[in-house]
Amino acid sequence: MENVTKLPVQPIAPSAAPEVKSSEAYLRMDHISKSFTRAGKTSQVLKDVNLTINKGEFVAIIGHSGCGKSTLLNLIAGLTQVTTGAVLLENREVNAPGPERAVVFQNHSLLPWLTVYDNVSLAVNKVFSAKKSRAERHDWVMHNLDLVQMTHAKDKRPSEVSGGMKQRVGIARALSMEPKILLLDEPFGALDALTRAHLQDSMMEIHQRLGNTMLMITHDVDEAVLLSDRIVMMTNGPSAMIGEVLDVPLGRPRKRIEMASNPIYLKCRESVLKFLYERHGFVEAA
Protein backbone atom coordinates (compact mmCIF):
# COMPACT_ATOMS: atom_id res chain seq x y z
CA MET A 1 0.00 0.00 0.00
CA GLU A 2 2.89 2.33 0.70
CA ASN A 3 4.58 1.99 -2.66
CA VAL A 4 3.44 5.49 -3.40
CA THR A 5 4.90 7.02 -6.51
CA LYS A 6 3.79 10.54 -5.81
CA LEU A 7 4.10 12.85 -8.75
CA PRO A 8 6.33 15.83 -8.36
CA VAL A 9 4.25 18.73 -7.21
CA GLN A 10 5.25 22.01 -8.73
CA PRO A 11 6.17 24.18 -5.77
CA ILE A 12 4.60 27.36 -7.04
CA ALA A 13 4.62 29.97 -4.32
CA PRO A 14 0.99 30.91 -3.76
CA SER A 15 1.82 34.58 -3.36
CA ALA A 16 3.75 34.66 -6.59
CA ALA A 17 0.86 33.16 -8.52
CA PRO A 18 -1.51 35.76 -9.91
CA GLU A 19 -5.09 35.93 -8.67
CA VAL A 20 -6.84 32.81 -9.88
CA LYS A 21 -9.12 33.75 -12.71
CA SER A 22 -12.21 31.82 -13.64
CA SER A 23 -10.42 30.26 -16.57
CA GLU A 24 -7.55 28.94 -14.44
CA ALA A 25 -7.27 25.64 -12.68
CA TYR A 26 -8.61 25.91 -9.17
CA LEU A 27 -8.89 22.34 -8.06
CA ARG A 28 -6.75 19.82 -9.87
CA MET A 29 -6.74 16.05 -9.65
CA ASP A 30 -3.39 14.90 -10.95
CA HIS A 31 -3.16 11.23 -12.00
CA ILE A 32 -5.08 10.00 -9.01
CA SER A 33 -5.30 6.30 -8.29
CA LYS A 34 -6.80 4.65 -5.28
CA SER A 35 -6.51 1.06 -4.16
CA PHE A 36 -7.83 -0.59 -1.07
CA THR A 37 -6.10 -3.53 0.52
CA ARG A 38 -8.16 -5.94 2.52
CA ALA A 39 -7.09 -9.36 3.72
CA GLY A 40 -4.05 -9.32 1.47
CA LYS A 41 -6.08 -8.59 -1.64
CA THR A 42 -5.62 -5.25 -3.31
CA SER A 43 -8.41 -3.86 -5.40
CA GLN A 44 -8.05 -0.76 -7.46
CA VAL A 45 -11.04 1.54 -7.27
CA LEU A 46 -9.86 4.53 -9.26
CA LYS A 47 -7.27 4.57 -11.99
CA ASP A 48 -5.46 7.60 -13.32
CA VAL A 49 -8.10 10.26 -12.77
CA ASN A 50 -7.22 13.68 -14.14
CA LEU A 51 -9.61 16.55 -13.74
CA THR A 52 -9.41 20.28 -13.43
CA ILE A 53 -12.15 22.41 -11.95
CA ASN A 54 -12.23 26.16 -12.43
CA LYS A 55 -13.26 28.75 -9.92
CA GLY A 56 -16.99 29.29 -9.74
CA GLU A 57 -17.70 26.19 -11.77
CA PHE A 58 -20.41 23.66 -10.94
CA VAL A 59 -19.22 20.19 -11.87
CA ALA A 60 -21.20 16.99 -11.53
CA ILE A 61 -19.66 13.54 -11.39
CA ILE A 62 -22.00 10.83 -12.56
CA GLY A 63 -21.63 7.08 -12.76
CA HIS A 64 -23.22 3.82 -11.78
CA SER A 65 -23.14 2.82 -8.16
CA GLY A 66 -19.87 1.27 -7.14
CA CYS A 67 -17.84 3.18 -9.71
CA GLY A 68 -15.88 4.96 -7.03
CA LYS A 69 -17.35 8.41 -7.37
CA SER A 70 -17.87 8.73 -3.63
CA THR A 71 -14.30 7.53 -3.13
CA LEU A 72 -13.16 10.30 -5.45
CA LEU A 73 -15.05 12.86 -3.39
CA ASN A 74 -13.56 11.50 -0.17
CA LEU A 75 -10.10 11.81 -1.70
CA ILE A 76 -10.73 15.46 -2.55
CA ALA A 77 -12.18 16.03 0.91
CA GLY A 78 -9.09 14.41 2.39
CA LEU A 79 -11.14 11.87 4.32
CA THR A 80 -9.22 9.11 2.53
CA GLN A 81 -5.71 9.25 1.17
CA VAL A 82 -4.73 8.86 -2.48
CA THR A 83 -2.58 5.86 -3.36
CA THR A 84 -0.80 7.67 -6.16
CA GLY A 85 -1.16 11.12 -7.64
CA ALA A 86 -2.22 14.29 -5.91
CA VAL A 87 -5.14 16.60 -5.27
CA LEU A 88 -4.22 20.25 -5.59
CA LEU A 89 -6.31 23.18 -4.46
CA GLU A 90 -4.92 26.51 -5.65
CA ASN A 91 -1.71 24.67 -6.51
CA ARG A 92 -1.23 23.34 -3.01
CA GLU A 93 -1.45 19.67 -2.29
CA VAL A 94 -4.22 18.65 0.06
CA ASN A 95 -4.15 15.40 2.00
CA ALA A 96 -6.15 16.10 5.15
CA PRO A 97 -9.74 17.23 5.60
CA GLY A 98 -10.43 20.88 6.18
CA PRO A 99 -13.23 23.43 6.17
CA GLU A 100 -12.02 24.99 2.89
CA ARG A 101 -13.35 21.79 1.27
CA ALA A 102 -16.65 21.51 3.13
CA VAL A 103 -18.69 18.40 2.48
CA VAL A 104 -22.46 18.01 2.29
CA PHE A 105 -22.87 14.37 3.24
CA GLN A 106 -25.38 12.05 1.66
CA ASN A 107 -27.12 11.32 4.96
CA HIS A 108 -26.93 14.92 6.23
CA SER A 109 -24.69 13.87 9.18
CA LEU A 110 -26.15 16.45 11.52
CA LEU A 111 -25.38 15.93 15.20
CA PRO A 112 -28.71 14.81 16.63
CA TRP A 113 -28.13 16.26 20.10
CA LEU A 114 -27.66 19.78 18.75
CA THR A 115 -30.36 22.10 17.46
CA VAL A 116 -30.37 23.23 13.85
CA TYR A 117 -28.78 26.50 14.95
CA ASP A 118 -26.14 24.78 17.07
CA ASN A 119 -25.21 22.41 14.26
CA VAL A 120 -24.35 25.37 12.06
CA SER A 121 -22.80 27.41 14.85
CA LEU A 122 -20.49 24.50 15.74
CA ALA A 123 -18.93 24.94 12.32
CA VAL A 124 -19.01 28.75 12.42
CA ASN A 125 -17.49 28.95 15.89
CA LYS A 126 -14.72 26.59 14.90
CA VAL A 127 -13.84 28.16 11.57
CA PHE A 128 -14.29 31.81 12.49
CA SER A 129 -13.35 31.77 16.18
CA ALA A 130 -10.53 34.24 15.55
CA LYS A 131 -11.91 36.20 12.64
CA LYS A 132 -15.40 37.13 13.78
CA SER A 133 -16.85 38.46 17.02
CA ARG A 134 -19.57 36.57 18.86
CA ALA A 135 -22.29 38.81 17.39
CA GLU A 136 -20.85 38.49 13.90
CA ARG A 137 -20.77 34.72 14.23
CA HIS A 138 -24.42 34.70 15.29
CA ASP A 139 -25.32 36.86 12.29
CA TRP A 140 -23.34 34.58 10.03
CA VAL A 141 -25.16 31.47 11.32
CA MET A 142 -28.50 33.17 10.77
CA HIS A 143 -27.44 34.38 7.33
CA ASN A 144 -26.59 30.84 6.26
CA LEU A 145 -29.77 29.39 7.71
CA ASP A 146 -31.62 32.09 5.81
CA LEU A 147 -29.87 31.06 2.57
CA VAL A 148 -31.47 27.63 2.85
CA GLN A 149 -34.73 29.00 4.32
CA MET A 150 -34.34 27.26 7.64
CA THR A 151 -34.40 30.13 10.14
CA HIS A 152 -37.91 29.15 11.18
CA ALA A 153 -36.67 25.84 12.60
CA LYS A 154 -33.43 27.05 14.15
CA ASP A 155 -34.31 25.79 17.63
CA LYS A 156 -35.49 22.37 16.51
CA ARG A 157 -33.44 19.22 16.71
CA PRO A 158 -32.67 17.30 13.52
CA SER A 159 -35.10 14.55 14.52
CA GLU A 160 -37.91 17.09 14.55
CA VAL A 161 -37.53 18.28 10.95
CA SER A 162 -38.05 16.49 7.63
CA GLY A 163 -35.36 14.81 5.55
CA GLY A 164 -35.25 17.68 3.08
CA MET A 165 -34.88 20.19 5.89
CA LYS A 166 -32.05 18.18 7.42
CA GLN A 167 -30.23 18.30 4.13
CA ARG A 168 -30.85 22.07 3.93
CA VAL A 169 -29.20 22.44 7.31
CA GLY A 170 -26.33 20.25 6.11
CA ILE A 171 -25.89 22.59 3.16
CA ALA A 172 -26.06 25.64 5.44
CA ARG A 173 -23.42 24.12 7.69
CA ALA A 174 -21.12 23.50 4.73
CA LEU A 175 -21.72 26.95 3.23
CA SER A 176 -21.11 28.62 6.57
CA MET A 177 -17.48 27.45 6.48
CA GLU A 178 -17.00 29.66 3.40
CA PRO A 179 -15.35 26.78 1.55
CA LYS A 180 -13.17 27.32 -1.49
CA ILE A 181 -14.96 24.36 -2.96
CA LEU A 182 -18.20 22.80 -1.80
CA LEU A 183 -18.28 19.02 -2.12
CA LEU A 184 -21.72 17.45 -2.37
CA ASP A 185 -21.91 13.67 -1.96
CA GLU A 186 -25.21 12.61 -3.54
CA PRO A 187 -26.85 15.29 -1.42
CA PHE A 188 -30.39 14.67 -2.58
CA GLY A 189 -30.20 10.92 -3.16
CA ALA A 190 -32.26 9.99 -0.12
CA LEU A 191 -35.04 12.50 -0.77
CA ASP A 192 -38.34 12.15 -2.56
CA ALA A 193 -38.63 13.63 -6.08
CA LEU A 194 -40.54 16.79 -5.12
CA THR A 195 -38.28 17.67 -2.21
CA ARG A 196 -35.29 16.95 -4.39
CA ALA A 197 -36.53 19.39 -7.04
CA HIS A 198 -36.99 22.09 -4.39
CA LEU A 199 -33.49 21.60 -3.09
CA GLN A 200 -32.01 21.56 -6.59
CA ASP A 201 -33.66 24.92 -7.23
CA SER A 202 -32.28 26.23 -3.94
CA MET A 203 -28.84 24.95 -4.87
CA MET A 204 -28.92 26.73 -8.25
CA GLU A 205 -30.04 29.93 -6.57
CA ILE A 206 -27.25 29.71 -3.99
CA HIS A 207 -24.69 29.00 -6.68
CA GLN A 208 -25.97 32.02 -8.61
CA ARG A 209 -25.82 34.28 -5.57
CA LEU A 210 -22.51 33.23 -4.09
CA GLY A 211 -20.71 32.05 -7.21
CA ASN A 212 -18.91 29.34 -5.30
CA THR A 213 -17.18 26.35 -6.79
CA MET A 214 -19.14 23.17 -6.38
CA LEU A 215 -18.49 19.53 -7.08
CA MET A 216 -21.45 17.21 -6.84
CA ILE A 217 -21.61 13.44 -6.93
CA THR A 218 -24.88 12.18 -8.35
CA HIS A 219 -26.52 9.27 -10.11
CA ASP A 220 -29.42 11.34 -11.36
CA VAL A 221 -29.00 12.36 -15.00
CA ASP A 222 -31.52 15.22 -14.85
CA GLU A 223 -29.94 16.61 -11.73
CA ALA A 224 -26.52 16.56 -13.36
CA VAL A 225 -27.66 18.31 -16.54
CA LEU A 226 -29.85 20.85 -14.77
CA LEU A 227 -27.32 21.96 -12.19
CA SER A 228 -23.88 21.69 -13.68
CA ASP A 229 -21.62 23.46 -16.13
CA ARG A 230 -19.75 20.26 -16.85
CA ILE A 231 -20.59 16.62 -16.33
CA VAL A 232 -17.84 14.14 -15.62
CA MET A 233 -18.89 10.61 -16.54
CA MET A 234 -17.16 7.73 -14.84
CA THR A 235 -16.68 4.26 -16.28
CA ASN A 236 -17.61 1.24 -14.22
CA GLY A 237 -15.29 -0.07 -11.56
CA PRO A 238 -13.08 -1.73 -10.60
CA SER A 239 -10.34 0.58 -11.80
CA ALA A 240 -12.87 3.22 -12.77
CA MET A 241 -11.70 6.25 -14.65
CA ILE A 242 -13.15 9.31 -16.29
CA GLY A 243 -14.87 8.17 -19.46
CA GLU A 244 -15.99 11.46 -20.84
CA VAL A 245 -16.48 15.07 -19.86
CA LEU A 246 -19.50 16.87 -21.24
CA ASP A 247 -19.93 20.64 -21.34
CA VAL A 248 -23.44 21.84 -20.64
CA PRO A 249 -23.69 25.03 -22.68
CA LEU A 250 -26.87 26.30 -21.05
CA GLY A 251 -27.20 29.84 -19.75
CA ARG A 252 -28.16 30.69 -16.21
CA PRO A 253 -30.48 31.05 -14.47
CA ARG A 254 -32.02 27.82 -15.63
CA LYS A 255 -35.70 27.16 -15.21
CA ARG A 256 -36.69 23.58 -14.64
CA ILE A 257 -39.84 23.76 -16.77
CA GLU A 258 -38.21 25.59 -19.69
CA MET A 259 -35.40 23.05 -19.65
CA ALA A 260 -37.85 20.22 -20.16
CA SER A 261 -38.22 21.25 -23.80
CA ASN A 262 -34.88 22.97 -24.36
CA PRO A 263 -33.05 21.21 -27.24
CA ILE A 264 -29.59 21.74 -25.73
CA TYR A 265 -30.78 20.30 -22.43
CA LEU A 266 -32.30 17.30 -24.16
CA LYS A 267 -29.17 16.76 -26.22
CA CYS A 268 -26.98 16.80 -23.10
CA ARG A 269 -29.34 14.50 -21.32
CA GLU A 270 -29.29 12.11 -24.24
CA SER A 271 -25.52 11.96 -24.41
CA VAL A 272 -25.22 11.25 -20.69
CA LEU A 273 -27.85 8.53 -20.95
CA LYS A 274 -26.07 7.03 -23.95
CA PHE A 275 -22.80 6.99 -22.09
CA LEU A 276 -24.32 5.39 -19.01
CA TYR A 277 -26.53 2.78 -20.64
CA GLU A 278 -25.15 2.07 -24.10
CA ARG A 279 -21.43 2.25 -23.70
CA HIS A 280 -20.99 1.60 -20.01
CA GLY A 281 -24.07 -0.32 -19.00
CA PHE A 282 -24.18 -1.31 -15.37
CA VAL A 283 -22.89 -4.81 -14.80
CA GLU A 284 -24.78 -6.33 -11.91
CA ALA A 285 -21.95 -8.64 -10.98
CA ALA A 286 -19.43 -5.85 -10.65
Binding site: P97, N107, S109, L111, K126, M177
Partner: peptide, 21 residues
Protein backbone atom coordinates in the same frame (compact mmCIF):
# COMPACT_ATOMS: atom_id res chain seq x y z
CA UNK B 1 -18.25 7.42 11.01
CA UNK B 2 -20.44 10.34 9.86
CA UNK B 3 -19.79 12.27 13.05
CA UNK B 4 -16.08 11.54 12.77
CA UNK B 5 -16.11 12.85 9.21
CA UNK B 6 -17.84 16.03 10.32
CA UNK B 7 -15.26 16.46 13.07
CA UNK B 8 -12.44 15.90 10.59
CA UNK B 9 -13.77 18.42 8.09
CA UNK B 10 -14.13 20.94 10.91
CA UNK B 11 -10.65 20.03 12.16
CA UNK B 12 -11.84 19.61 15.74
CA UNK B 13 -8.88 18.93 18.02
CA UNK B 14 -9.00 15.97 20.38
CA UNK B 15 -10.24 18.11 23.27
CA UNK B 16 -13.10 19.52 21.21
CA UNK B 17 -13.83 16.09 19.77
CA UNK B 18 -14.09 14.65 23.29
CA UNK B 19 -16.54 17.31 24.53
CA UNK B 20 -18.55 17.96 21.39
CA UNK B 21 -18.73 14.53 19.77
Amino acid sequence: QDYRNVAQVLRLNSFEFFWKI
